[in-house]
Amino acid sequence: MSATIPSEVTLLERRRIEAAMLADVYAVLVERMGRAAALAVIEDTVARAARAAGQAFAAQAPGGPNLAHFATVSAIWQRGGALEIVNEQRDPGRVSFDVARCRYAESYREMGLPEELAVRVSCLRDAAFAAGYSPCLTLDRPATIASGAEKCPFTFTWNDA
């Protein structure tokens, strides 16, 4: 079950609110269950929410989920300067781009979230969102800014199967 947040809240602000709550939940879970179990709960929770968001986005696709529609999500992700995307390429069956600046990661650092948690509340979303959008869609992203990389190279591939 997901609470509705007013639409005037930017996605970046929403993620900060969620991260603050998840950080508190994580601290309690670590005390009760240990670090590994706490991280697993956070991973499952974030992945579940991201899959549902991907399904909701897919439901908006005229004619059903497809790569051209999915590629429009990058504009949503960039709103309010949340991401700086460069090197965007769209080919039949593939969309790729690099995130050169991630204000999500910056925000989580400012909040004092440990890297292990920041990666899970932010970066983990992307593959689960893609999987929720369509089983035909896969994400390859070998590095993230949140885990210390200079950029986040995204490649989404559509495999009609």
Rank of each mutant, 00 (worst) to 15 (best):
G63W: 12
F154L: 04
A27H: 13
S74Q: 09
V99T: 09
A128D: 06
R90I: 12
C123H: 02
A59T: 00
Q78F: 02
A149S: 05
A38G: 07
Y104F: 15
A27C: 04
A61K: 06
P153R: 14
T138K: 03
V119N: 08
Y104L: 12
S74H: 10
P142M: 09
A105S: 14
T157R: 14
A61V: 02
F57W: 15
I85F: 06
V9T: 13
E106Y: 07
R15H: 15
R141W: 09
Q89D: 12
R109Y: 06
T155L: 09
Y104I: 12
A56W: 05
G148I: 06
T72W: 02
R101E: 00
A130N: 10
E150I: 11
E150P: 06
F156C: 08
A19T: 07
P62C: 12
S2C: 04
I17T: 07
A71D: 13
A20D: 07
G64Y: 13
M21D: 07
I76L: 14
V95M: 12
I85N: 03
F57P: 02
R141N: 04
D126T: 06
E31G: 15
E8A: 09
M21L: 13
Y133V: 00
L12A: 03
A105D: 00
T10G: 08
A161H: 10
L83H: 11
G80V: 08
L117N: 10
A71H: 04
R94S: 14
S74C: 05
V30D: 00
F129N: 01
A40N: 01
T157A: 11
F97E: 04
W158V: 08
C123D: 04
R90H: 14
V41C: 10
A36M: 06
I145K: 06
Q89P: 04
I76E: 12
I85H: 04
I85T: 05
L113V: 09
R141Y: 05
A118I: 10
L22G: 05
S96E: 06
Q55I: 03
S7K: 13
M21R: 13
Y108R: 10
F156Y: 15
G63I: 12
A61W: 10
A61L: 10
M21S: 09
S74D: 11
R109T: 12
S74N: 08
F70A: 01
D91Q: 15
Y104A: 05
A143W: 03
P114G: 15
E150R: 13
I85S: 05
E106F: 05
W77F: 13
I76K: 09
M111W: 07
G93D: 07
A128F: 01
A128S: 12
P114E: 15
C102M: 05
L137F: 11
C136Q: 14
A40S: 11
F97P: 03
A50C: 12
V86T: 14
S147R: 14
A131S: 15
R16C: 01
T138W: 00
L139R: 01
V86P: 02
T144R: 11
F70M: 12
S134E: 07
A23Y: 11
P142K: 09
C102V: 09
S107K: 03
A59V: 03
F97V: 08
A3C: 02
